[in-house]
Design a binder for these strands. Structure first.
Lengths: 215, 215
DNA sequence: TGTACATCAGTGAACGCGCGTTCACTGATGTAC
DNA sequence: TGTACATCAGTGAACGCGCGTTCACTGATGTAC
């Protein structure tokens, strides 16, 4: 029986130290990427001995899992907050996505970058991924459908496991997917530094892609 | 004075061992990603002692640099070979790009994925990147310009350092960039496994995006 | 309010591992006369 | 063709490092009577 509200001082202390560990982990990730994440280094930064962290996390893998989950969660929350304050259209979502990605590129990469070797995300993360997809599908369903039905949209209509239970018509499914891949295309190349020195403004490319999605 | 043609047996042997080292490195990368690359492990696989590799590479960083260069080179060669046998249109380029990326996702990630922490690519790689971009610009220039001039295309016209010396008109610049980001958007998410379990066929999404680029 | 006990955070030592890299060396291969 | 020397591939030992993780332990904090 989980007494969610009341917390003993010890529970509060535990939660606080756990949060502090994660914060240092994020700083480490932001600096050197996820592969450089080290329990011992975090402990040293906190003025603790290495083994002390095992009171809070079963091991390195559990910590990473938690961080991935939190990253997904923070993206979902960021998108939700944006839609609640600025409306649930794709422009709002796109701007929020970009802000979130560039705020901490290594957090972005932890979720959408090269998979961490040997690590596989736990199932409950798909719940959050679904939540994100649902917001996107909602926004795309609200758009005027425009344009002829593509053959890919037909394919999607027959393979919409990822949108199960959502009332989005085929054109909206297509649009949601394309929203996702086009914007990640710009963001991932930009965050990885592949536009550095090319001269143009990636933000304007992003905006142009968004414009075309809204047509 | 480099006598390029004639090679002493020793030179040939050196070149062969270097190639063998790289091949084991690629196998290691294909299996566990670039961050897991280890000189000692390669040596062990080859039945050599660790220090032996230092006859062939100054260190881990030089090996990685070489691998990145080879990866770029292999993409450029793949694209060039495709255009020479099937014509220099964007469909050919797109199919070749996809084939190259999915043939060895970790090689793809080494080039276009999360940047290796602490590692920075040497300047001479931009030469290959330029070569790739030139093929893309050529193919886009050959296309009918279609559609009104976007405001982003105007921006590109004023910031075209990346296409310096190329006769591509603004619309072609825009198209080349968008070709690049849209296809990488699909490829990077696909290669990272983000479409797994969603039910649809990423290949059809890729093809649909390509179709739209050709309109 | 005070005492006895249980809980739990954190320590220090240790284990085993693999890493990149250096160094002095052996032994084979190639070169010059 | 044979001998003397230089070149160079590869070895084994060693250095210093940091990693994740375990274990038995101390000392503080909370709980029950």
């Amino acid at each position: 029986m989980a007494e969610s509200g009341t917390k003993t001082p010890r529970e509060r202390y535990r939660a606080q130290v756990r949060a502090e560990i994660k914060q240092h982990a994020w700083e480490q990730i932001a600096t050197a990427g996820a592969s450089a994440l080290s329990l011992n280094a975090i402990a040293k930064q906190m003025g603790l001995s290495g083994p002390a962290l095992y009171r809070y996390f079963a091991g390195r893998d559990e910590l990473i899992t938690e961080l991935v989950r939190d990253a997904y969660r923070s993206l979902a929350d960021t998108l939700r907050a944006a839609t609640e304050s600025s409306g649930a259209d794709i422009t709002t979502l796109a701007q929020a996505l970009r802000g979130w990605a560039l705020e901490d590129p290594n957090r972005y990469f932890l979720v959408y970058g090269t998979p961490v070797p040997g690590y596989h995300a736990p199932d409950d993360i798909t719940v959050i991924a679904d939540e994100i997809m649902r917001m996107l599908l909602d926004a795309c369903t609200a758009l005027p459908s425009g344009g002829p039905a593509t053959s890919f949209a037909e394919h999607l209509q027959e393979h919409r496991r990822w949108a199960e239970g959502h009332p989005a018509p085929p054109a909206a499914l297509h649009r949601a997917l394309v929203f996702w891949t086009r914007l990640h295309g710009v963001l991932s190349l930009e965050a990885a530094g592949h536009f550095a020195g090319m001269g143009f403004d990636p933000g304007q490319l992003y905006a142009a892609e968004l414009d075309e999605l809204r047509r």
